[in-house]
């Protein structure tokens, strides 16, 4: 499949209230192309609540229910149950896809309970977390997804803790499908959304969403930053189907040794939120810590991949 095979129809309409270079609208466009019109969309409090534009017009050409911050998984359970009823009654000939779209605040922090509950019930829906690693909509405060050492308005000298990993928490829920994605690899994202659509049960897809105002880089660099996150090994692209993980796209190339990891410093230097790591002088300790952590993960993945060639049947993939 190639770019030219993607549908032309736009369900995200031009002239929205999104910022220039917005990763949220970019991700929505690709997701909508993968899912098509037969989709019911729930938008959880986030930038998407705003960028769809104010009452009485909307940039989203789908049936949309905006919902409260902590409710993503649960509202999907309700819609999904109702869809089953209506299918039974013949109102729907083909069951629409239930899509919940939430940010990292609504996923990692306030919404994790509802998400976990829906996943445990194996609610039939796709949950997309567009992860911009902060509460950008409220002016960039730290979230559970904010990486170590990153500036936010309430971690002014850099976050002291490492981020948690909700994709892996979802893997631990034993849901049928978990995947990560990157804006720089739209075909990879598109195919993962399409696969998610075809699988019944709970599907979790997380896409890294570099946010120009929050991460402090120029609007033209959204895709570049996304790509560097993958090329440095900081953001891993994979999918986990029924407990079997395999790495995809840029991350697969990295692990298979077809490309070598770029130094994370290149990624960090592009973003104003890490400026304090390089100015007035380089913070060798913290930059070193970040690089060491990433290299450790990538090396262990490479090692496991090699092991795998020898022990084909053994599932010993480490969690990234």
């Amino acid at each position: 499949m190639r770019l030219k095979d993607l549908p032309e129809e736009e369900l995200f309409l031009q002239g929205s209230a999104a910022c220039q270079g917005c990763p949220g609208s970019m991700a929505l466009r690709v997701a909508f192309k993968a899912l098509g019109r037969n989709t019911l969309l729930v938008v959880i409090a986030s930038c998407i609540s705003v960028l769809q534009s104010p009452f009485p017009v909307s940039a989203l050409d789908l049936p949309v229910l905006n919902m409260a911050f902590a409710s993503g998984g649960a509202v999907a359970s309700g819609i999904s149950a109702a869809v089953r009823r209506l299918k039974k009654r013949g109102v729907f000939t083909e069951e629409p896809t239930v899509l919940v779209w939430a940010g990292d605040g609504g996923t990692y922090d306030i919404g994790i309970q509802a998400l976990s509950g829906a996943a445990e019930r194996n609610t039939n829906f796709i949950y997309v977390c567009y992860n911009n690693e902060a509460y950008s909509n409220t002016g960039t405060q730290r979230s559970g997804a904010t990486p170590y050492a990153a500036w936010t308005t309430n971690t002014v000298s850099g976050k002291q803790e490492w981020r948690k990993d909700v994709a892996q928490i979802m893997v631990a829920h034993n849901v049928p499908y978990v995947a990560t994605a990157s804006l720089a690899y739209p075909m990879d994202f598109y195919q993962k959304m399409q696969k998610a659509k075809s699988i019944p049960g709970t599907k979790y897809i997380e896409i890294l969403a570099p946010c120009p105002p929050a991460w402090k880089f120029p609007s033209e660099a959204t895709v570049q930053v996304s790509r560097l996150a993958v090329q440095s090994g900081l953001w891993l692209l994979y999918e986990c189907e029924n407990g079997h993980t395999h790495y995809t796209s840029g991350t697969a190339r990295l692990i298979e040794g077809r490309s070598s990891a770029k130094p994370v410093e290149e990624y960090l230097r592009m973003q104003g939120r890490f400026r304090h790591l390089f100015s007035p002088e380089k913070d060798e300790k913290r930059v070193g810590e970040i690089q060491e952590r990433i290299s450790g993960i990538v090396e262990s993945l490479k090692f496991t991949a090699k092991m795998r060639e020898h022990i084909m049947d053994l599932e010993i993939m480490p969690r990234p």
């Binding site: 309409l13 002239g15 769809q52 017009v57 909307s58």
Partner: peptide, 9 residues
């Protein structure tokens, strides 16, 4: 309730 529109902003 809002309706889809090009140029919503």
């Amino acid at each position: 309730i809002s309706f889809p529109s090009v140029g919503s902003a």
